[in-house]
Design a protein around this nucleic acid. Structure first.
Lengths: 233, 233
DNA sequence: AGTTTTTGTGACAATTTTATGACATGGGTA
DNA sequence: TACCCATGTCATAAAATTGTCACAAAAACT
């Protein structure tokens, strides 16, 4: 299972060098040399990681990063930003956008590979495009459809994203704030309690379809999505 | 809840600058200027993050990093390595040791803070929270769940925190005051005896699930969490 | 044995946290 | 424009948690 890595870099020699190094190391490189090309390449099946040059003609890398990180489907693709040494400031701005790491040019091949591996290891990817099944409940991100035992249930966009997030992150408690960050997106000003309401709507849709409620309330902490738990008596 | 950050750096001006920046940004800095001092500072309560200079007198930073990363108790503390620009190779070696990130000198305060925050956000939540198992009782901080022989027992928030504290600090007696400090938080005005009540609730939940009581009363001193005790003869 | 000190327990009321129904808003569409 | 739907927010109901107390039980001490 080779990792697909999209290399967005306008300087051809550097781009080719990177591609070479990647393929030497068992990665699968896709190339793009500007904003528009990159946009075209970020489609299904999505790359597993993006190496993104900070300075791109016709639109900065940051702009692209921001765009990707705001899109529901591309948000979880890790991005490593390639920066020129000079401008420290840009690095920081890169972080604000949600970039996962950056590498300063010039960099050694070893360093690049080390960083890529580190990021991939860290981000723990779940392939976005694949249907997820969990205890008879199936969520198909492509068809944007949820079914329980082959009968469809319909959800609003937000409920869908919420369920999607939960299904890709089961067995783990998330606070309301974390859910807002992950499902609604960062820097969105919404009340904590709004999460409760959406949880309720989601629960209603699921249990209404005759399915067991897989969302557990963890008092004082948040909510958790998981399968049956043996209750203690 | 301020984060404790240990700054290990031999050059005083740099160290002080870092400390200043950290405290400006709401972090709590602890300083060390060499290997030995650093070793002394990495004790309970452990720092939340370590800024470690690559070049230290009397033992390199890498040596210290390696040591910390091999120790069971300090392994999960994120480390950011401070490196001199020149040697790219060292950076990579830093990664091999398990260092979580590095910053190349000279760096801007903004960048430093951004990296610290990124690392804490990234590393701390998962690394700090590995499941703890003790004689068939398992506590998973991530799932926020306690199970005994695979059947879940549910605890209130306070009982959960109390058990968590005990399981991370077994075989040691804690006075009621100490427990209040550690579980309830400092400067909280609560009666000593309240601890007794929570101990009882916790015991009830555990023994109620058919599990042996691992909390021992140490008369006149407090409570201790530990495995079976050999009866005295 | 009697007394004092310390801890265990059940009950309870106050407080905190969550569930739920209703409603207003705003975007999109016929 | 009128209508529909999704969404965020509130008010209120419901539920769970928590700190204390009073008293029982146990241990320590005279």
């Amino acid at each position: 299972m080779n990792r697909q890595i999209l290399v967005v870099e306008d300087e051809a020699p550097i781009r080719e060098m990177i591609t070479f190094v990647l393929e030497q190391n068992g990665f699968n490189a896709i190339e793009a040399e500007d904003f528009d090309q990159a946009k075209e390449k970020v489609v299904e099946p999505y790359p597993d990681l993006i190496l993104l040059d900070w300075m791109l003609p016709g639109g900065s890398g940051v702009k692209l990063a921001k765009m990707l990180k705001q899109n529901e489907y591309t948000r979880s693709i890790p991005i490593i930003m390639l920066t020129a040494r000079a401008d420290e400031e840009d690095k920081v701005r890169g972080f604000d956008v949600g970039v996962d790491d950056y590498v300063t040019k010039p960099f050694s091949p070893k360093e690049l590979i080390a960083r890529i591996k580190a990021v991939i290891r860290r981000v723990a990817p779940t392939a976005l495009e694949e249907a997820i099944e969990f205890h008879g409940m199936k969520l198909d991100p492509v068809a944007h459809r949820v079914s329980i035992n082959d009968s469809n249930i319909d959800l609003g966009p937000t409920e869908f994203r919420l369920l999607h997030f939960f299904m890709t992150h089961p067995e783990r408690v998330y606070s309301r704030e974390q859910l807002l960050d992950n499902v609604w997106g960062t820097n969105v000003y919404v009340e904590d309690r709004t999460v409760d309401v959406h949880i309720r709507r989601l629960r209603k849709a699921i249990t209404g379809a005759g399915h067991e409620d897989f969302i557990q309330t963890v008092r004082g902490s948040g909510y958790r999505f998981s399968g049956k738990i043996k209750a203690s008596v």
